[in-house]
Amino acid sequence: MPHQHATRLLEAAGQIILGKEHELRLALTCVVARGHLLIEDVPGVGKTTLAHVIARLSGLQFQRIQFTSDLLPADIIGVSVFERENGAFRFHPGPVFAQLILADEINRATPKTQSALLEAMEEHQVTADGQTLALPDPFFVIATQNPAYQIGTFPLPESQLDRFLMRIRLGYPDRGAERALLMGEDRRSLLERREAVISPQHLLDLQRAARALTVTDRLVDYLHALVAATRHDAELSGGLSPRAGLALLSAARAWALIEGRDHVLPEDVQTVFPHVAGHRLHLAADGRPVPPEMLRRMVEGVALV
């Protein structure tokens, strides 16, 4: 049963990242739904650790790219170097050729560099020197972003944010978790001693199983009503796009699978909705992202039929 792989992974990850079961589950949902994840929070709450944990425990090739203001697209994709001995250019692949990429502090790089990565995410391939090269499968990007009000950042434009299936916040650990964190062993060294609990193939199985989950007409109606509600809301600058609707459905499927069900319930849609819609909706008044309580109100405004 594919969802047992998910359970195994979540159990193991929960021992390293303490008190963040829900966020871990959401992150895994994003992987299973074949989407990319954006983690937005202040530094030091474990964004990077989360990416490490997923990569390590599922045996994915891992690359970390630290985004800085002088990072160039070639630093991500790779460069062609002239080799004297055989008199030809040879492509040296960049860090993007990995199964899981942690794009750390993506909003510190210039828009040009950001878009190089974001295009790779969208197309699952890169083009260098006129050559199109496929990226490995699974291919998964976790980007972290500091809240936009920090100095020296280039906030991602709305169209680029849409490339991320979900956005989550980690938040501070609760008292018990933080205590355990302070008392316990260093998380990195703890992680280095852990072996992978599932294989990349298991992840691919999970992805396939999620796509096969049953979705009834009734659920599609509900999902559509929810999406339509965002379009009628006068407080928003615009509603969810059809692509966002698809994203919502695939995230709900992945969540339902991880929950161990073979069908999608409205609850699944409601759970992933704030994380799928949150970075795609903006307030009409000042263009800021919608606050979470407004997302919750939106869910509560759509009746189940």
Partner: peptide, 9 residues
């Protein structure tokens, strides 16, 4: 039941 509340919730 709240109008938006799913069966499991």
């Amino acid at each position: 039941r709240q109008p938006w509340e799913g069966p499991l919730d």
